[in-house]
Design a protein around this nucleic acid. Structure first.
Length: 626
RNA sequence: GUCCUGAUAGCUCAAUUGGAUAGAGCGUCGGCCUCCGAAGCCGAAGGUUGCAGGUUCGACUCCUGCUCAGGACGCCA
């Protein structure tokens, strides 16, 4: 619920009320009061843009409608008096908030929750956030940065809004690829080529690539060879390799069957692969300050037992049907509108299950067992069609319901990270970039910037470098629109200037510094005195800062609704900017009098607390100095 | 072939979901530290929002058709 400090919400209520009274014939129709913060300060702080829409509905002149709204609305407690001069252009109503009212609103916001009250009762939801999504035997690559960081932030935001958040790391730990790796490792161990006890993730990663290569590439080469009618000798050579590949794949399939039957020898190797991968994955998540813990692991293997019964259930209820020997769910009759989604394949003609089957089992588990009201998938954009199909199939199956109400299934899709050449981000050597390398690169840059600070202890330098590099990485990743690809430039991370994560931390440490100095100059009780001081917002920089602070709760709720962290990034950047301008224009410790000093200190304190709260939502560690 | 997503300043990105003169950062140019942290502040230059139509008081935003880029499409995950 909107608190009394939320200007936007208050104005919406007031104007909606005014419109209803001025135009009773519109009763029953929900008319959007269309309140928006003013873009240009000369048009006031807020504007009501409803007159044009209302004029259309009632068939009147927009400016006359605006006058009628003006006559009916009462905002005298908040704003400068509204006159005909407040109506501009085709019918905009400009509202300028009085500075004393602003001070009152800010005072009302100065509570432990900073005006952002956690949801309670029916408004409090259980929300599953699917994030990270690492695959066994594979290094985390840059794509996992996005799933992990965006997922972590969305989970933090939703929890901050009062919801019961359940993180789920849907680990790719099942299926033929893993079995192929296990098969290869067992062969190599048997041949004395490797020591399973000392195996690393890098070893697993290369085993994965080799297994995949040995198992598939030649068949493609053969196809190409035939297509271009190449020499029969070459074809025969490739044919022999294909036979090898088929043999390897068949071995893999045998191992998969054993794995699914929990054959002790195979299962032990699988467990090893899992342990090595997850240890590294969780360590990298820690390095990113992302809350991804062992208890969040809910791998595909966890649903293995459920797949058979699930398909049987769907077939028996007629939700699924057999087509060309495979079990499918048709969803084109459910998704309205032209592009009908193709059917979802849930069981292959050879009896094997697919990842769509696993995802359906996961949806059922999340809705029915975990009691989710909302499930959020933080997974890359290439899987949009997949989720569209699976969500539709789950609804058709009745899995996505809780207590008779539909569970909201949302794919928070994100774009790719590109290199400066516009192609997927790679390392110099052309390998797909490992996330760990990216983290280390950011750490090194931050260390280099801090190297000059002789006054900092080694411990401080390490802590600060970590925070700064996390700020840079996470902010870079989340500050642009989620769905868009973005270009990652290591070059730009050197500077830590401008619209970056470190800039936000810089604003914070300057506030902290002021409070350290305040205690020195005016005694330890100064902060406490300032905390209760009356706020005066005479300077425009003070007013701007206040306006920014008041937006915090509505922005955070927007992020919870839209699942778009860049809105929070933009807000913090604007808040930090408003503070920087205030810092420059309004001396705090050398303010002209004690009342002004304490008012400004209180403003600093509020800014600090909002910054800390918001930075924490972004998963950026807060620091005292840098 | 069908479908999805995108295209905004030299570069990287915004634009409160249809509102007024499209805003930031980087880079460029010019100011500001004997004064609370210059990782900063203030200012300037920089735009036919891919192209062409349409919808209306009003379009970066919605509709149609193109162009370009990336991606996904029943027996991989």
């Amino acid at each position: 619920m909107a608190g009394s400090h939320d200007v936007l919400a208050v104005l919406k209520d007031r104007f909606a009320d005014a419109i209803a009274r001025a135009f009773p014939q519109l009763a029953g129709q929900a008319v959007d009061p269309a309140i928006a913060p003013g873009k240009n300060p000369k048009f006031g702080d807020y504007q009501c843009n409803a007159a044009m829409a209302v004029a259309k509905l009632v068939g009147g002149n927009p400016r006359e409608v605006a006058k009628a709204i003006l006559a009916a609305v009462d905002v005298s407690d908040l704003a400068e008096p509204l006159t005909d001069a407040s109506i501009a252009g085709p019918g905009f109503i400009n509202v300028t908030i009085r500075t004393d009212a602003l001070a009152g609103l800010l005072t009302a916001m100065d509570t432990p929750t900073l005006g952002l009250e956690p949801a309670t009762g029916a408004a409090r939801q259980t929300i599953v956030v699917d994030l990270c999504g690492v695959n066994l035997a594979k290094q985390l690559h840059v794509g996992h940065l996005r799933s992990t960081v965006i997922g972590d932030t969305l989970a933090r935001v939703l929890a901050r809004l009062g919801h019961n958040v359940i993180r789920q790391n849907h680990v790719g730990d099942w299926g033929l690829p893993i079995a192929m790796v296990a098969s290869r490792l067992m062969d190599q161990a048997a041949a004395g080529q490797i020591d399973l006890a000392r195996i690393t993730l890098a070893d697993l990663d290369s085993a994965y690539k080799e297994a995949k290569k040995a198992g598939t590439s030649e068949s493609a080469a053969l196809a190409a060879c035939r297509k271009y009618a190449m020499g029969s000798k070459l074809e025969a050579e490739i044919l022999a390799q294909v036979e090898d590949a088929k043999a390897i794949e068949n071995r893999g399939k045998e191992v998969l069957v054993k794995l699914q039957a929990k054959d002790p020898a195979v299962y032990k190797v699988w467990q090893l692969i899992s342990d090595v991968t997850m240890q590294q994955c969780l360590a990298t998540c820690r390095d990113l300050n992302a809350i991804v813990l062992p208890e969040h692991t809910a791998g595909e293997s966890a649903y293995a037992e459920a797949l058979g019964p699930l398909v049987d259930d769907l077939l028996s209820r007629g939700v699924a049907e057999i087509s060309q020997g495979a079990a499918i769910v048709r969803v084109d009759d459910l998704e309205p509108g032209p592009p009908p989604a193709p059917p979802v394949l849930i069981r292959k003609s050879d009896g094997g299950y697919l990842y769509a089957t696993t995802d359906m089992a996961a949806i059922r588990h999340r809705c029915q067992t975990l009691k989710a009201d909302r499930v959020v998938y933080v997974v890359g954009a290439p899987q949009m069609l997949h989720f569209k199909q699976v969500f539709a199939a789950a609804r058709k199956a009745g899995y996505a319901e809780r207590a008779g109400k539909p569970v909201s299934l949302e794919h928070a899709a994100f774009g790719a990270i590109l290199g400066e050449d516009g192609k997927p981000f790679k390392t110099r050597s052309g390998q797909s970039a490992k996330l760990q390398d990216l983290v280390e690169l950011a750490q090194e840059r931050a260390q280099a910037v801090l190297a000059e600070r002789a006054e900092l202890s080694e411990y401080d330098r390490t802590t600060i470098a970590s925070a700064v590099s996390i700020a840079a990485l996470r902010y870079t990743d989340m500050s642009s629109e989620r769905l868009r690809d973005y270009v990652f430039s290591p070059e730009r991370m050197v500077a830590f200037e401008g619209n970056t994560g470190p800039y936000l931390l810089y604003a914070l440490v300057r506030i902290k510094s002021i409070f350290r100095k305040a205690a020195e100059r005016f005694g330890p009780a100064e902060s406490a005195a300032a905390a209760a001081a009356p706020l005066t917002l005479g300077q425009s920089a003070e007013k701007n800062l206040a306006m920014a602070l008041l937006r915090y709760s509505s922005v955070t709720q927007d992020v919870g609704r839209t699942l778009e962290p860049h809105r929070l990034c933009a807000f913090i950047y604007e808040l930090a900017g408003a503070y920087a301008s205030f810092f420059d224009a309004c001396p705090v410790l050398t303010a002209p009098d004690e009342a002004t000093r304490r008012s400004r200190l209180r403003l600093c304190s509020l800014t600090e607390r909002v910054l800390v709260d918001a930075l924490t939502l972004l998963g950026i560690p807060v620091i005292d100095r840098m």
